[in-house]
Design a protein around this nucleic acid. Structure first.
Lengths: 139, 139
DNA sequence: TTGATTGGTCAAGGAGCTTGACGAGCTACG
DNA sequence: CGTAGCTCGTCAAGCTCCTTGACCAATCAA
């Protein structure tokens, strides 16, 4: 490679892992794109507001609405009125959504263990520690 | 954070660095987006074919053409016929392009040194080594 | 020589994200 | 209390980055 830059490597590593997660999801029969999968993980069992989801995912609420729309269309999430605030709604997982979420967790965990084995425990920890430091509180 | 996943951290770290590079470029008076900056670095002084650029950047040639179009419009690159192959053209930096490229190199290098200082030499090396291993030849 | 391949290009579109605006409901403060 | 300002979800539009598909002209391989 001609210009092996750190940011480039981070992007490639992200893409590689992202594709791996997507493939793992497909293997489990889930047709979810990584953004959808990540959003699914952020929803509390008891229901979470859209705005809160957007904050957690660091997306605009408009974008999060699109993602929730998709997941609602897929029957994995549903919206219910928030009893404590007439403006708001809460997003909840459906029964299918809960099952899918468990699959997503397993898929992500399996990829992550694969990486952990590839690097070895010590280097894996070192990698995540470095990333935490680089992102400095963004995550 | 609720679900601190490796792929998420990689993405956030990439974005953080990318924004930092973009800001560093703006500080130097260059209005280049990171994709354009990276492409600019890939062009040989003596000229490089579009297809070769696409390969180096791991983009489709169609996308690379768009990026080169933008950089040509900005007066940083120009296309010349390839004397050895009548189908082909070579993309070359203009004089301004060469100067901009040097600025890009400095901007990227400065961000990378900042990270290097932040992490310390040992952990920086460990990070890049882990990323190389994760991307496994993609870079 | 001719069939397959390569280099650049045009066209169209999709994924993922953003900004802007807005109505309905909530909250704080005079 | 009243009202000014804010928050929640939403609609609309558009941008960036990238992709797929189709072509033609030039080159290469048989």
């Amino acid at each position: 490679m001609r210009e092996p830059r750190l940011s480039r490597m981070l992007l490639e590593a992200f893409r590689a892992l992202d594709e791996e997660v997507e493939a793992a999801l497909r293997d489990r029969g889930l047709d979810l794109r990584p953004t959808q999968a990540r959003a699914l993980l952020l929803v509390d069992r008891t229901g979470t507001r859209l705005t809160e989801l957007a904050l957690r995912a660091r997306l605009t609420k408009q974008r999060m609405m699109q993602v929730v729309d998709e997941l609602e269309g897929a029957g994995l999430l549903r919206r219910a009125p928030d009893p404590t605030d007439a403006r708001a709604k809460v997003v909840k997982p459906t029964a299918r959504g809960l099952r899918s979420r468990a699959e997503v967790r397993r898929a992500m965990a399996s990829v992550e263990s694969r990486v952990r084995r590839q690097l070895g425990e010590r280097r894996f920890r070192s990698l995540t520690a470095a990333l935490v430091e680089l992102t400095g509180g963004r995550i």
